[in-house]
Amino acid sequence: MIRCKGVEKSFSDKKVLSGIDLEINDGQIFGLLGPSGAGKTTLIKIITGQLAYDGGSAVIMGKEARDLTRQDGRNIGIMMDNFGVYDRFSCIDNLKVFADIYGTPYEKIAESLELVGLKDAAKKSASDLSKGMRARLQLARVFMHSPEILFLDEPTSGLDPRSSKAIHRIIRDRKKEGCTIFLTTHNMEEAHELCDTVALLNEGRIVDIGAPDELCRKYDRKKTISVHLKTGEDMELSYSEENGAKIGELISSGNVETIHSSEPNLETVFLELTGKKLEEE
């Protein structure tokens, strides 16, 4: 559904994207992880045909991104971090504008608002919505015309955990319905929880790509098991036959409080590969 091969982009003298290669299959949630300024939004703009690219190929729905027509655009839903809503309009009126543009029947407005949990706020002015509700209104706008591909640029950025969870649920529901989702985030938990594949983007280059669990296993350098005993003692055991038997004994004697393998999370993987943290402190 989406395929990039050697995509390059520069602004003036600054190279923003260098040789981006990626492939996203139908019905997949693909996560692009990287710190601010890594080039995530630029890549979305290129794939969705909003921005010209200097080299390589970006194919979406079988077409080069630069050749997308208005009709193709209707199969794509985009929610960018900085996209606005009409503050003086109610939620319904905000969606009516886009229903008119897409030729979507007005009945879909109520459905979309219900889907994102804004049914009760339907007549509320957008200026009175919280940040989380505004994000959900943007999602409703994106979902309303049932696009095949969704691009969500940091959809939970700055939201409280409850709003984030609500948005995660909506994203998963769309995936179940067969939607392909391209998600950018610098929240590694979000990526791990939602994505089938993640690409780690740093300074315009993809430093690694794969399933989140796969990547974590790949960079498990320590290969140890940490055991916390009920006595308060901590043990770190390497992978060996002898330690396996020891762990078995500890479990059967009922002395184990917690047990963890040592594979890193995506944040640690990213740190190891780039020397940078995903989220700014």
Partner: peptide
Amino acid sequence: EKNTLRVLMMAGVR
């Protein structure tokens, strides 16, 4: 300024 124009353009308004 409010980036609603960009949303309109993305929705296919020329």
